[in-house]
Write a protein that binds this DNA or RNA. Structure first.
Lengths: 220, 220
DNA sequence: CCGCATCCGTTTCGATACTG
DNA sequence: CAGTATCGAAACGGATGCGG
């Protein structure tokens, strides 16, 4: 007889169940994933989540906001817009996003030739494939321009950070498409071949692409 | 027009999305959680998942089996039964389960007096609240009997393991209920008070309860 | 009692059309 | 650009039935 049960929740006194009450709905963690590369506008979030309905995206953002994991911010003129960004609370989901990535990375095959590949997840995966033990002293910042969208990848003695947007002083900027970058990371393409085939364009230190390829090769 | 789309999946070339395709459905990760304490029969799984529909549990188990994360095993006589257990693949979800627990642990308040508390999640949470830095040399095995259900908690120089079932040679066995154990871990009850109030019964070394309480105190 | 399978009302999700 | 409104499809929750 229609008990007023509010929302669907695991009613269990359990840390894992609580997490899933917070984050377990469809799309929620993928939104968080996208925001880990930096603030995003509604429309760009929508573009990065293939197949999400607009009202679903709105609903998830409202929930994440109410939970204090995401904040809405109005950009001032001259470029007024609404962006969504992670709060400090939200940033504490980093280890969870990483754990999910590590599980999923082993499941990814070489993409089918016609499979569309978004840029953001590929950039995000650099955090997973980074091999600190190779080049442990490496410290430099790369620009990445994937289908025209700029990203920043910074390596600093064994740690990486990835963000949206172009870096201030990159040692080099690589211009390519997500699929080619996947090929490089997976070792299906060598950095040499990428250069001679001109599927990657380099602005700046051309040798930086070799170091990049070594540092981020997924060794399966 | 009904495109035959099969199941609901994020069609994205992304490690995180792949993980969620595998594990993101309701109940799936809670089933995995329960199996991390050891093999379980269908009925016991059902009892540990408040509110799951029977066909849902069956469906999830079938999917996990098909994905190679869970295996079905028939126990031989004299106690014939079917148990479900994690495969080696399934055990690789440990870091993910832990990350979920760490997010959720900070969200758990002191349980309401009438809130039911299952034993398994409390035992599982010991992996999260364990403080290796206190008593770094501690190496001993405790028995835990919560509402009559036996568990084993082993500490070995900075690492813990938790399982269902009674240990072979415990330094002590604590007999209590999940709620009291939560009080101990959260620091709402001292081990001394628990002993004098007789809400915990100890078999074996009574001082072991103090060490246990120190080692597993959630310091928030 | 254990291990499911079936049925049915409710909730959530997906797709698309539309609006300030 | 940033959402609402609408509607059909799928998933879920709960009860019940049923063979070993």
């Amino acid at each position: 007889m229609a008990a007023v049960e509010g929302k669907r929740t695991y009613r269990e006194y359990c840390a894992i169940a609580r997490s899933l009450d917070l984050l377990g709905q469809r799309w929620t963690l993928l939104i968080v994933r996208d925001l880990f590369l930096g603030p995003q506008r509604y429309t760009d979030l929508h573009a990065g989540l293939p197949g999400i309905a607009t009202d679903m995206l709105t609903a998830r953002l409202r929930t994440l906001e109410a939970e204090g994991l995401v904040r809405r911010r109005e950009l001032p003129p001259p470029a007024p817009a609404t962006v969504y960004e992670l709060t400090n609370e939200g940033r504490r989901l980093g280890p969870l996003i990483r754990a999910l990535g590590e599980v999923g990375l082993t499941l990814l095959d070489t993409p089918a030739p016609d499979e569309p590949i978004n840029a953001s997840p590929v950039v995000m995966s650099l955090n997973l494939t980074f091999r600190a033990e190779e080049l442990p002293e490496l410290t430099e910042t790369y620009g990445l321009e994937l289908d025209g969208t700029p990203f920043t990848v910074s390596v600093d003695r064994g740690t990486v950070t990835t963000e949206r947007g172009a870096p201030a002083a990159p040692v080099a900027t690589f211009r390519t498409d997500p699929r080619t970058l996947v090929g490089l990371i997976r070792g299906d393409t060598s950095s040499q071949a990428a250069l001679t085939d001109r599927v990657v364009e380099v602005d700046g230190d051309r040798a930086a692409l070799d170091r990049f390829a070594v540092a981020f090769l997924a060794d399966r």
